[in-house]
Simulated scan of single mutants.
Amino acid sequence: MVKMGVIAYDNCYLSSLSGPMDAFQVANAYSCRQLGPSGTQFSWNTVSITGEPVKTSGGISIATDMSIANADVFDLIYLPAFPYQGALAMDKMAEELRPLLDWLVVQWKRGATLVTICTGGFLMAETGLLDGREATTTWWLEKQFHKRYPNVKLNSRAMITEQDRLMCAGAMTSYQNMAVHLIERYATADLAIQCAKAMLIDTSVSAQSPYQNLLMDEASGDPVVAKAQYWLQNHAKENIDQAELAQKMGVSQRTLIRRFKAELDLTPLNYLQNIRIETAKQLLENTTLPLIEVTEHVGYTDISSFSRLFKQRTGLTPAAYRQRFKAKEA
């Protein structure tokens, strides 16, 4: 039997805390139905720093089974997510949870596998254990994570990463994907499939990239870059040359590229491509335009080249993206 410690702390998301336990309860029910009472695969206890109840971000109080000082030895330790409120709030939270973070390091060194999802990745990174290792987090906090933890090999496109008994999953509801992954890992693939079907978990989703907004948080404080962004957004369908764009902005091409990279970690051409991809997403979601017309509308003439770029950035072909995200008619 796999023994799990589920960490509870003030201001964590309730669904992130309880969701995996629900999935393991379903797994145990199916396993016991097949194998009898001895078929239980997972057990868990809730753990907090002091053993006292904690209040989740939604204001619901949760009782816990034990403190970190009195905790058992666990095979898995699961760390839920929380509402990210900026760098200063993260500093304060890391300081308040330092006893817990230090305890996690000790447990990992003793052989436990540490598991987290979404913003819980920030807390796992605070332990220092992710330095030099691959990890993921919620896609919309990619830049904040990379800035705070530059030594972590962040892969925000991934739904789940795993290295050296450190497992991370992507945005909010990825606890479902993580739970199925753990059931498969520690029980059987057949049991994981049964649970996924029972809980309506789409196991075909293996990446966050289809959900990412490629233009999120891209406003620049650099006046030249901001001016170029505005110009590109209003001329995205045109055939744009970087040298010509630089001339319009009153700087050299080399300077424009350097300033774009410094501000957005993108070249002007990459930024233009992202504008076009996001425009295409909207058309695929909200219209029935044929792909050739979508392609032309966003400034491309070669449907094959556009489709390759679209799949490279989103992980899906345009047709697959439309099938998954097309708005339902009222």
Rank of each mutant, 00 (worst) to 15 (best):
I68L: 10
Q312P: 00
M124L: 14
D10R: 06
T317L: 00
L97I: 07
T64A: 05
N213I: 14
Q176D: 09
W103Q: 03
G39E: 07
E142S: 14
V73G: 08
W103L: 10
M199D: 04
R259E: 11
E52S: 14
T138C: 13
Q163H: 12
A319C: 13
D22P: 03
R148Q: 12
Y30V: 08
M172Y: 03
D102P: 07
S204F: 05
R259I: 07
I292S: 10
S43Y: 14
V225T: 06
Q163F: 11
T138G: 00
K147Y: 11
C168T: 14
P210N: 12
L104E: 08
A198Q: 05
E296D: 13
L166C: 06
A71H: 09
E162D: 14
L182W: 02
R110Q: 15
W103T: 10
D222I: 11
I62F: 08
A179R: 00
T113P: 03
I60M: 07
V26A: 10
R313L: 07
I62W: 01
G111V: 10
E162G: 10
L79K: 03
Q323L: 10
L129C: 02
G5L: 01
L309S: 07
G221T: 14
M159P: 01
D302T: 03
L14V: 13
A27D: 02
T314G: 12
F42Q: 08
A187H: 03
W108L: 09
L154V: 08
T295A: 00
A187R: 00
D202S: 05
D241Q: 15
A69I: 12
E278A: 08
W108F: 10
L245K: 10
V225S: 00
F310N: 01
I77R: 01
T288G: 15
M159Y: 01
G170T: 05
A192M: 05
I240P: 01
K227G: 09
I201R: 02
F145A: 09
L35Y: 06
S18D: 02
T137L: 09
E162A: 12
S307T: 07
M216S: 11
N70K: 14
N274K: 08
L266P: 00
K311T: 15
F325A: 04
W108D: 09
E329Y: 02
A226R: 05
V225M: 02
L129Y: 04
A169V: 06
A63Q: 15
D91E: 14
T255R: 14
V180Y: 01
D265Y: 12
I68V: 13
K261P: 06
L215K: 05
G36E: 14
S209N: 10
D217I: 12
Q242F: 05
I277W: 02
Y300G: 03
V2A: 09
G250D: 13
G5T: 12
D190E: 15
L284N: 04
T50F: 06
I277F: 04
I117K: 04
L17N: 00
T64R: 05
L104Q: 05
L215D: 15
P20H: 00
I117S: 03
A330T: 11
A87P: 02
F310D: 00
A179L: 07
M93K: 13
G128R: 15
L17V: 07
